[in-house]
Design a protein around this nucleic acid. Structure first.
Length: 708
DNA sequence: GGAGAGGGCGTTTTT
DNA sequence: CGCCCTCTCC
């Protein structure tokens, strides 16, 4: 079969596909056929004689790489078996797993997920006797956050506190001690967290030339997608594996960088030509996804950015409806109106459910909508938010699996013992130590008093001796675990049992337990493929990256939610929120609706609070959207002409937002009541938006502030 | 050292 | 409301 590259691609795409030798940087605007370019390049490489196993494709999710490989296979009409594709983390895992000795873990290692890390941090904190009885002491999740941030950004904990959480700077000595203890604990117990995968991988490559040369020899062509969201160590890894003359294609879009919180560094894109000498830079600017009215809006969002992007996407799809701006009276009515809109799109305009997506800033924002969808019986599939494998019962079961592979996995062991009555943390710890040192005497004495403990330990031994395939192992585990499940969740154990069945389904595709466990912790939700068919999509904006739909609905576009209040600790964060909205809007092909509820119900104090429209919405000129308002009598009314911000009473409390010209200069201030705060932005000529720890974001008149 | 009651507190984003 | 942490009593 021959592929008509020239005809299927535009000139810029064609150039990127044909440029196979030497480094290329493809700056690909949203919807500009980035995936298509990668897919055709894969096909072209193989067609011109490159063996599939000489290609390495690093993407942001496993799903993305599978999709690209599949598409390349279908246009090629042959298999790409052997091509290495996946995330940096999963690739690192694959290599480290067969080279565990180089890490000093001769008996292998265990991958930690986020809750594992938090638990270790907590344990370290307790052993160091830090924060005892201090209610305001940073919580384990905060501590873990800071530790992982310091690693991802490659900064000291002091620097991270300074930048991300200045109100915690007083804890920097503690945090340093905890970080050190955390590291030691991992080393002692052969544990690797997400960050270790990357850093250990780098270390192994630097210390073992044989391993490095082997990789370099094998991977002659490397492609890295979403390059704007790589962090520094990932960039170094690419360089390392590619070697001096590497054939690397990096694809990215600086305007879509949304992972700075995790250490992603846009500078990687800018520095790429410096790192790889002779880099060919190619820009893809024609948008094939969206209609012009949608692009007008997304271009405007970028226009407001403090740092300008040289980007004006264009399309030939001039027709299409203007994006809607809908203003419900509350988040409750927002949920109902979204449902109405979905029904309308589906029934009257013929969009299949899986061609419609609802996007939001944080996982819990969709809860009211999920209830409303349930009421009318629309099925949906949710991306982002809680992870399947982190649900308590799933995690319980996975810990048994971990013990099969590594009986000394302390975290797993302690967790498995948890449901035994009369065995708390201390006793569990002693049992663990007794097992490790072979202290039969203690084991005998403790098990004599507790028959169910004895039973469980015996079950574990049998399990370890007899487990074969992942499926077989899981069946045995479920048999052991089910009594505990029923005990622990008397109300909803049937539902959780169904979850275990789902897990059992997943095991069928694996032949070894290690890769089953690793895939689960590295790929998050695995079940999606099966349930995907024709369901409405709910997704966080982050998880929507790289995807597209005919109709996109974005909800909760109000201050504190989008932009997220938690995210605004420094001026750069505000810009990232803006790019996040840009990513969200550019997912839409034809229909785009932005929802701005006037009030939101607050579950923990039971009150309904008025909102202020998101600054990004207030910035939009009226002619770009079609405005729909809910009247107090119910129902939506179309509003002609005037911009959204003009009608909003919020206008008085929150004058139109302007990013400061030099946000970096803003610094700190002091307020009589709120104390020290960080200035996020200048608003108008005499007001500031300030983040006060413990009080949140406030807009304060300059006269009341003492600048520091 | 463990279990259970009571109180404070607060929901970002992900590999 | 639900989680997590602390306190109290066994």
């Amino acid at each position: 079969m021959s592929i008509d590259f020239k005809n299927d691609l535009n000139p810029a795409q064609y150039e990127a596909v044909m440029h196979t030798d030497g480094p290329v940087l493809v700056i690909a605007g949203a919807g500009s056929g980035k995936t298509r370019t990668i897919v055709y390049r894969l096909a072209h490489l193989v067609q011109s004689g490159v063996r599939p196993d000489q290609i390495l494709l690093l993407t942001f999710t496993r799903k993305a790489s599978l999709e690209m490989l599949n598409r390349a296979e279908s246009i090629l009409g042959r298999s790409l078996q052997g091509t290495s594709g996946g995330t940096f983390h999963s690739f690192a895992y694959k290599i480290l797993r067969v080279n565990a000795h180089a890490l000093g873990f001769d008996k292998g290692f265990t991958l930690m997920d986020r809750p594992d890390s938090e638990n270790v941090v907590k344990e370290v904190k307790e052993t160091l006797e830090l924060g005892k009885g201090d209610r305001s002491y940073p919580k384990k999740s905060t501590l873990t956050d800071m530790i992982t941030k310091s690693r991802n950004k490659e900064l000291s904990v002091e620097q991270v506190l300074e930048q991300e959480a200045f109100h915690l700077t007083g804890y920097s000595d503690d945090l340093r001690a905890i970080a050190t203890g955390y590291k030691q604990f991992k080393h002692q117990h052969a544990l690797l967290d997400y960050d270790d995968l990357l850093f250990s991988f780098e270390r192994v490559l630097l210390e073992n030339p044989d391993i490095l040369l082997n990789l370099r020899g094998r991977y002659r062509y490397i492609m890295v997608d979403e390059y704007q969201d790589t962090n520094r160590v990932q960039a170094r890894l690419v360089k390392l594996i590619a070697g001096e003359t590497g054939n690397v294609m990096a694809v990215g879009d600086d305007a879509q960088s949304i992972y700075a919180f995790r250490g992603a560094n846009v500078a990687n894109i800018l520095d790429y030509p410096k790192i790889f000498e002779g880099t060919k830079i190619i820009r893809l600017e024609q948008n094939y996804r969206s209609t012009q009215p949608i692009l007008d809006l997304t271009n405007t969002i970028l226009d407001g950015a403090a740092q300008k992007f040289e980007k004006k996407l264009f399309t030939v799809k001039n027709d299409g409806p203007r994006p809607r701006l809908v203003q419900p009276l509350s988040d409750q009515s927002q949920a109902n109106q979204v449902v109405d809109l979905i029904l309308d799109l589906h029934r009257s305009r013929g969009y299949a459910y899986h061609e419609i997506a609802v996007l939001f800033r944080a996982g819990y924002h969709s809860y009211p909508l999920e209830v409303a969808l349930g009421r009318v019986g629309i099925e949906y599939q949710k991306y982002g938010g809680l992870r399947f494998h982190e649900a308590a019962h799933i995690k319980d079961v996975l810990c048994y699996m971990r013990l099969i592979r590594n009986p000394t996995d302390k975290l797993a062991f302690l967790r498995v013992l948890e449901p035994i009555k009369g065995v708390g943390p201390k006793t569990a710890e002693r049992i663990y130590r007794a097992k490790a040192t072979g202290d039969e005497k203690y084991l005998k004495s403790i098990t004599r008093k507790k028959p169910d403990l004895q039973q469980l330990l015996a079950d574990l031994d049998v399990l370890r001796a007899s487990a074969t395939t992942p499926m077989n192992a899981l069946e045995q585990v479920i048999a052991i675990y089910t009594p505990f499940l029923m005990l622990k969740y008397p109300d909803d154990y049937p539902k959780r049992q169904a979850g275990l069945e789902q897990l059992a389904q997943i095991t069928t595709t694996y032949t070894d337990i290690d890769s089953f466990l690793a895939d689960l912790t590295l790929n998050g939700n695995e079940e999606e493929e099966k349930t995907r068919d024709n369901k409405l999509v709910l997704s966080t904006v982050h998880s929507s990256k790289g995807l597209e739909w005919n109709a996109v609905i974005i909800i909760d576009l109000v201050e504190d939610r989008f932009p997220s209040r938690k995210a605004l600790t420094k001026p750069d964060d505000f810009e990232e929120e803006r790019r996040l909205l840009y990513v969200a809007c550019t997912r839409a092909r034809r229909e785009l609706a932005l929802f701005v509820p006037a009030s939101i119900y607050n579950r923990y104090n039971g009150s309904t609070e008025n909102t202020v429209p998101s600054p990004f919405v207030r910035e939009l000129p009226a002619h770009l959207t079609e405005i729909w308002q809910e009247s107090y009598a119910g129902g939506l009314r179309k509003k002609e002409g005037a911009p959204a911000a003009r009608q909003s009473e919020a206008d008085q409390d929150a004058p139109s937002f302007k990013s400061s010209k030099d946000p970096k200069k803003l610094g700190y201030c002091r307020h009589k009541i709120f104390g020290k705060g960080k200035i996020i932005a200048e608003i108008g000529s005499d007001k500031y938006r300030v983040n006060f720890p413990g009080f949140g974001l406030k807009v304060i008149v300059a006269d009341y502030l003492e600048l520091l």
